[in-house]
Computed example of a mutant assay.
Amino acid sequence: MIVEPINDKKKINDFLTFLKGKNERDWLMAKFRLNTGLRISDVVKVKVSDILTEKFNFKDYFVLQEQKTNKEKKIKLNDSIKTALNTYIKQNKLGHNNYIFRSRKGLNKHITVTQAYRLLKNAAVSIGIENFGTHSLRKTWGYWTYKVSRYNIGLIMDTFNHSSQKITLRYIGIDQGAKDELYSLVQF
Rank of each mutant, 00 (worst) to 15 (best):
Y117I: 00
T36R: 00
R118T: 13
R102A: 08
T17D: 14
L38G: 05
I167T: 14
I51F: 04
M1R: 12
Q91K: 14
F15T: 07
K55W: 06
G177V: 08
L19N: 02
F188T: 07
K166P: 01
V3E: 07
G21R: 03
V186F: 13
V43Q: 00
T112M: 07
V63T: 15
H135E: 02
S163F: 08
K11L: 12
Y117C: 02
Q65M: 10
T168Y: 08
N161K: 07
G173R: 00
V186N: 13
K93E: 15
F160A: 01
G106A: 12
V44C: 01
E72K: 12
S126T: 06
N57E: 14
Y171A: 00
K73E: 13
K82T: 06
K45Q: 12
I100H: 02
L119Q: 05
N92H: 15
H110N: 15
R39G: 00
S136N: 03
H96K: 11
I174K: 00
I111C: 03
E66G: 07
T36I: 04
W141V: 00
N97I: 06
K68R: 09
K93I: 12
L94I: 08
Y61V: 04
K147E: 15
K74G: 12
L119S: 04
S80N: 15
A124M: 04
V46E: 07
R39H: 03
W141Q: 02
Q165H: 11
D180V: 11
E24H: 12
K109C: 02
M29F: 06
H110G: 05
N97V: 05
K105Y: 13
S126Y: 04
D180G: 10
R150N: 15
K93G: 11
I174Y: 03
S184N: 15
K90H: 14
N35T: 05
V113C: 07
G128N: 12
M157A: 07
S164G: 11
K59N: 11
E4R: 02
D180S: 13
I174T: 04
G21L: 01
T53G: 11
V43D: 03
D79V: 09
N122K: 15
K10Y: 10
L185Q: 13
R39W: 03
H135K: 04
Y117Q: 07
G106C: 11
E181Q: 10
G154V: 06
G173F: 02
K74N: 12
V43H: 01
S41A: 08
K76Y: 08
M157V: 04
I12L: 10
F15D: 09
L64P: 11
T114D: 06
Q187W: 09
K166W: 03
F132E: 02
K82I: 05
Y146Q: 03
Q91I: 04
K9H: 02
N108T: 14
